[in-house]
Amino acid sequence: MQPQGAVEREFAYSKADFDAVRKQLHLLTGIRLADSKDSMVYSRLVRRIRALRLSGFAAYLTYLDKHPEETEQFINALTTNLTSFFREPHHFEVLSTYLKKHPGQINIWCAASSTGEEPYSIAMVVAETFGRFDAPVQIIATDIDSQVLQKAQAGIYRADRLQGLDERRCKQFFFRGKGSQTGFVKVVPELQKMVQFRQLNLLDAKWHIRGPFDLIFCRNVMIYFDKPTQLKLLERMVRLLTPSGLYIAGHSENFAQATHLVKAIGQTTYRPAGGVLG
């Protein structure tokens, strides 16, 4: 029996297969896939099944169990990476204001860098605020997906990804491709140097990053975890914030039930509950 709404498919795909996949993903990452993601799971994993020349989903799950090196491919395939430059622009106004109020050394953690648009947007605001690229600001950008991190480090994007960016930023922070690279842009080296990219699974017992951080951008990530996991992660992150630090959440995330950890001070912007207004 195929999941509801399924069409005829190349490989047999039952609800049991879907449930087994999301159980394994939750075990590895803490991410809970909704029932509506059945088609997404099929389309993402069928590529791996073909590449490995396996007979179907049951065979793939057996292969995954016996070959730990496939785990990275499994996670990469199922991790959603929706992002854009200056997504939710009000957060970057908050960042600019914070930088102006705190002119000293600032540490920023972007906890879900995806293909790099968010951390590079942060870096652009830093460069603009300080008027130079070598600002006293450290930006660490992490993601669970090794493939999107490679794209982020390369800093190469289709030119249409810059839609909505004003011309000044396009000229200052990107090179436009020529010849065979027409239709693509590349982040300028000075901006690339401002961001350190690292692979990190938020569910790992130990995070190989060092705080304290003045700002943590963790936007539209928590929605993939159940409530207990959200609170555990939020608590860990808040412990890494300075007393005057800020936690920046996504538009669909709300921590009204976690007032013992954070206090809302603006639109999806929080400070540590025991912190100070900065």
Results as ranks from 00 to 15, higher is better:
residue 110 C to P: 01
residue 153 Q to P: 00
residue 129 T to W: 02
residue 18 F to E: 13
residue 195 V to P: 01
residue 50 R to I: 08
residue 86 F to S: 05
residue 179 G to H: 08
residue 7 V to H: 12
residue 66 K to S: 15
residue 140 I to C: 05
residue 69 E to G: 13
residue 240 L to V: 10
residue 220 N to F: 07
residue 96 S to K: 12
residue 231 L to D: 13
residue 140 I to Q: 04
residue 157 Y to K: 01
residue 271 R to G: 13
residue 109 W to F: 11
residue 25 L to K: 02
residue 65 D to K: 15
residue 81 N to Y: 04
residue 48 R to F: 08
residue 214 D to V: 07
residue 66 K to E: 15
residue 33 L to K: 01
residue 247 Y to D: 04
residue 259 T to Q: 14
residue 122 I to N: 02
residue 185 V to G: 05
residue 157 Y to W: 05
residue 28 L to T: 04
residue 82 L to M: 08
residue 142 T to F: 02
residue 83 T to R: 00
residue 236 R to P: 03
residue 64 L to R: 01
residue 92 F to V: 12
residue 19 D to A: 15
residue 62 T to E: 15
residue 203 L to D: 08
residue 101 K to H: 14
residue 226 D to S: 06
residue 188 V to L: 03
residue 52 L to G: 10
residue 231 L to H: 12
residue 94 V to P: 00
residue 115 T to N: 11
residue 130 F to N: 04
residue 92 F to N: 09
residue 240 L to C: 14
residue 13 Y to M: 07
residue 114 S to F: 05
residue 223 I to G: 03
residue 144 I to L: 12
residue 183 G to A: 10
residue 119 P to N: 04
residue 73 Q to C: 12
residue 277 L to W: 11
residue 62 T to F: 10
residue 138 Q to I: 12
residue 213 F to V: 06
residue 232 K to C: 10
residue 112 A to T: 09
residue 44 R to W: 06
residue 241 L to H: 06
residue 266 G to R: 00
residue 168 R to N: 14
residue 34 A to N: 13
residue 9 R to A: 15
residue 242 T to Q: 10
residue 171 K to H: 14
residue 61 L to N: 08
residue 137 V to I: 06
residue 109 W to Y: 11
residue 162 L to R: 00
residue 73 Q to T: 12
residue 258 A to K: 00
residue 164 G to Y: 07
residue 247 Y to E: 03
residue 40 M to W: 00
residue 38 D to N: 14
residue 25 L to T: 07
residue 37 K to D: 12
residue 101 K to E: 15
residue 241 L to W: 05
residue 268 T to N: 05
residue 195 V to G: 02
residue 68 P to M: 03
residue 181 Q to F: 14
residue 41 V to F: 00
residue 61 L to R: 03
residue 219 R to L: 05
